[in-house]
Design a protein around this nucleic acid. Structure first.
Lengths: 205, 205, 205, 205
DNA sequence: AATGAATGAGTATTCATTCAT
DNA sequence: CATGAATGAATACTCATTCAT
């Protein structure tokens, strides 16, 4: 069960891979995906232009990799964290908190995940077939469980509810970003969950 | 009842302007904003390449114009339709219906409005300072009124609720588009309003 | 001996032609020949774009016309003025004075005549076959006469001397222009003639 | 005796740079600066279009570089050659000979230096602030020295005399070029110096 | 004669990607 | 593994000119 030939080559390689991803996030956030040049990314990562292509297939793949890498880690963490919690509604709340926390501390990353990554139909399809689809499926399964256990109303389809939830979270992040990322993004977690849970309509006593 | 200097020149001019906008929607939807070439748009509109620049300042301005033109008309219609209705919640429902209806009948348009138009931070800012900001303000004012009249709960800020509502609608449209625009988009109106109004949590008797 | 059909049509036409030429001089001087646009010239002349083409064959012809028009008038004046003078050297002096005077009062014109008009081999050939050739011939004939009458040394060819004389005058105007047309250009007439006549070498007593 | 970091890379680079400059001279001379296309230059230099921009900032910079490169070398040679000569008048004669010799053997180069390079006020200013200004200053200093040493008459300003001398040389080259570069340009050196030195007027015994 | 809206040919420049070293 | 010089495809935009009115 040898994980790698030598102990360092792979660490070294992984370290360089991460440096390139970080450089890509910063450059894409600063200049926008289309305006950023590969040689800018290379310079920011302190590698030669050609080296980028030893780690990623091309500029587009680099962007997909940023997205999938971040989302993949977030999904892993989410699965770990919700493992010991039984209430699906509570689990959903935890996942959304993680969603916000991941972006809250890294506006450049948020910028890339929210904006630069949504630039065309074709690209959206690419993402949906990757980690984004996985994330949607996670949300959907939690909602479906919630319905089975009676915590969530059964008269809306889980997929539909997933879209509403994701859309709400997504737009909260977007508007925070467009405003210049002021204050702590996670302060919206509580009101967001409240609104999604209980709805907007005033209840009478 | 002459509307302006020449009776026909302006009709003629307006007709050509609309033809170009339509061609832009179709080409941008088909190939994506970045891949579409201006000369494709010109050909689709049956005008010379240079003529595009007599009506729009450039490719980017053409995209902004599509967005603002469509949203401007929708806002106007919305204001007219809600004029005779007093309940803010009902008004909000009507605006959202109109939102869905506008895109339901024209997937190419929806494609441009939802995806091609969101391609960068810089561009989003441009839109937000135009009609999109106006639309957000319309939604916000309806929610604020609803709160004053006791229809909508007062413990969330109107701006925040606007983001949640818009985000939910936006994502419904997005997922419909990504699925290939199957069926009638407006079929989601009722469940969407229900979810936003009453929330997801199951109520006990 | 009817000079024209009606008294006004031709005056009117001529007036408009001159207005266009003047506009061309100003625009070519301000922006340079290549950067100036025909519609700028039209606007400066208060005519429609298309009207330019009723008076001149195109942009290039407009530039040739400016050059030939100015030089043609200068040549006519020169011939008139030297008519009563017998000394060829004195005649040459008068022609050069006229050359400087023509440009001295109109830096925009000087700019076009000296710079914008010299932009390519092909164009220089065009000019040389027109009024410029005529001007060179005038200078050459004066020098040849001067040689016959013993005023000018006979051991240089008249054509060669013409080039030296013209080159000297031309460069004086150029350097005056490049310096921003400071002071009166004609102040160089006397030293120029002195230098050309007596040469640079110091004579001993 | 290594001149720089790598022994060959720099030779290789310099060789390519010179190949591009030569290609530019030939293309600019053949078609004129404005009509010549960058990809023609690239093809003539046997490099890819993009390579041009690794060596020169753009088309205009390429033209400036031709001019400055040629003039820079000529000035260097001139300074070397006149080093051992004491008479300023003799030095001036040598510089002008070098001026003519440089252009005599390379009509394409002469064409670019004399015509294509003079296409606008803006561009002339550019040149004057570069090597051309340096060349004028060289001529001026020789004339000023000649005045101090009593070889050149003192009643004309050195700057003015410089213009006359340069203008005469320049026009000699121009007329040679316009005539199709017939014969040896340097055959005009002797009569030119004679005319500039002694003037045109016939001396009596 | 005059207009000015429409035409459409023409090109410098960028930058993702490759591959010889 | 890494480099970075070289490649070359790809396109928005301008503006002189035309011609229907």
């Amino acid at each position: 069960m040898q994980e790698s030939a030598g102990p360092q080559p792979n660490d070294h390689r992984e370290e360089k891979r991460r440096r390139i991803l970080r450089a890509a996030i910063d450059e894409f956030a600063r200049k926008g995906y289309f305006s950023a040049r590969m040689s800018d990314v290379a310079k920011a990562a302190s590698v030669a232009d050609g080296t980028l292509y030893l780690y990623f297939e091309g500029k587009e793949h680099l962007l997909v990799s940023v997205f999938d890498d971040v989302l993949g880690r977030a999904i892993d963490r989410a699965r770990t964290e919700i493992a010991g919690v039984s209430s699906p509604l509570e689990r959903l709340r935890m996942v959304i908190r993680l969603h916000l926390e991941t972006l809250a501390g890294d506006p450049a990353l948020a910028q890339v995940m929210q904006i630069e990554t949504r630039h065309s139909q074709r690209f959206m399809n690419l993402l949906t077939r990757g980690r984004l689809g996985e994330y949607f499926e996670l949300l959907r399964s939690l909602i479906a469980e919630g319905q089975q256990q009676g915590e969530i109303r059964r008269d809306v389809s889980p997929g539909f509810a997933t879209n509403v939830v994701f859309g709400a979270v997504d737009e909260i992040v977007n508007s925070w970003l467009l405003a210049g990322a002021p204050g702590d993004l996670t302060r919206f977690h509580e009101p967001l969950m409240s609104l999604l849970s209980a709805g907007m309509v005033e209840r009478r006593a």
